[in-house]
């Protein structure tokens, strides 16, 4: 294998890994804010992809407004889910395991809703980033690879700025750490948790849109992506944002290289084998979440 091919594989793996990193980030956001694991994250991604299919592929609305409509619709859904389901359950101190089963139910519900509305046939729409292969030196690149990396870099920088530097962002992190104290600061915890869900489902929608040039849409596509995203979260460190990003990218690159040099059929076994090793020998992941539980 030449260096050029390896570099090519790393780039393709990076694009795939970023797709995993986004739902992984969503999972970590929700985990931090509410201590819950959201099993529906992958199916929310699927739903985002299909909404884009209708808005962009069928209604022919231009890409940027279609993208915004999709993300906004999914954000609203996340807000509603939080207000109708998650916050009331948290407020009534329902056992987290029971709330978790509810997210599995959402996952099944969304998957079947997609199936009923859009059918089972795998679907695609015109690649919005163009399908003209670009050649840079010895590298052959699809334009969407560059676009995915660029869009996600901008998105993550904005998210980072929001969480670090704005009052609302700091309040979101405060609620994730100490809910009694955040109430005493005058923060509405219910609204902050709803905002976290809104952000998390919007991010899922972004990955649902960005994945379309790589994979055809099927109602069950979110399932495998969610499992990879969870592997990314656990490898990176549950609750850590940089861990979610690096875990996602690592999973994407590792599986792409493995598929190319060993056998694509064993790709998932390889990734989950690594996950098992992590759970056995480094259960906190690469980056343990920086928030300590109690002083």
């Amino acid at each position: 294998m030449t260096v050029a091919i390896l570099f090519q594989l790393i780039l393709n793996g990076l694009a795939m890994g970023i797709i995993y990193a986004l739902p992984a980030l969503g999972i970590s956001l929700i985990w931090n804010a509410s201590g819950l694991f959201n099993f529906a994250q992958g199916d929310l991604l699927t739903l985002g992809g299909y909404i884009m299919l209708t808005v962009f592929g069928k209604l022919n609305i231009p890409f940027i407004p279609a993208f915004m409509i999709t993300v906004a619709a999914m954000g609203l859904l996340g807000y509603a889910l939080s207000q109708i389901y998650f916050y009331p359950m948290l407020e009534n101190k329902v056992n987290p395991q029971i709330i978790l089963i509810g997210t599995v139910a959402f996952s099944v519900f969304i998957r079947n809703l997609v199936l009923v509305i859009w059918g089972t046939t795998p679907q695609t729409y015109t690649n919005p980033f163009g399908s003209q292969v670009m050649q840079i030196g010895e590298l052959y690149l699809m334009p969407h690879v560059i676009w995915i990396v660029a869009i996600v870099t901008v998105l993550l920088s904005l998210l980072q700025y929001f969480l670090r530097s704005t009052m609302v962002g700091i309040a979101m992190r405060a609620v994730a750490q100490r809910q009694t104290a955040s109430w005493l600061m005058g923060i509405r915890n219910d609204r902050m948790i709803a905002l976290t869900f809104l952000l998390s489902t919007s991010i899922a929608a972004v990955s649902g849109v960005l994945i379309s040039p790589i994979l055809p849409l099927t109602p069950s596509m979110g399932g495998m992506i969610a499992v990879k995203a969870m592997a990314a979260v656990l490898i990176g460190g549950l609750g850590s944002f940089s861990g979610a990003l690096i875990g996602g990218v690592a999973v994407g690159i590792a599986e792409t290289i493995f598929a190319a040099i060993v056998d694509p059929a064993y790709r998932d076994i390889f990734i989950f084998g690594i996950l098992v090793l992590f759970l056995l020998f480094r259960p906190g992941g690469i980056f343990k979440a920086q928030v300590s539980e109690k002083v």
């Binding site: 009052m167 405060a174 100490r178 009694t180 104290a181 600061m185 300590s292 002083v295």
Partner: peptide, 29 residues
């Protein structure tokens, strides 16, 4: 809180993962 009543809870409950500056900033939320 808006009416001007502040409560320093038992066990202090500072936000451990926020910096001192961010803790103070959030106090003025």
């Amino acid at each position: 809180v808006k009416l001007g009543l502040a409560h320093v809870p038992e066990g202090r409950l500072v936000f451990p993962g926020l910096s001192v500056f961010e803790n103070l900033k959030i106090g003025s939320y």
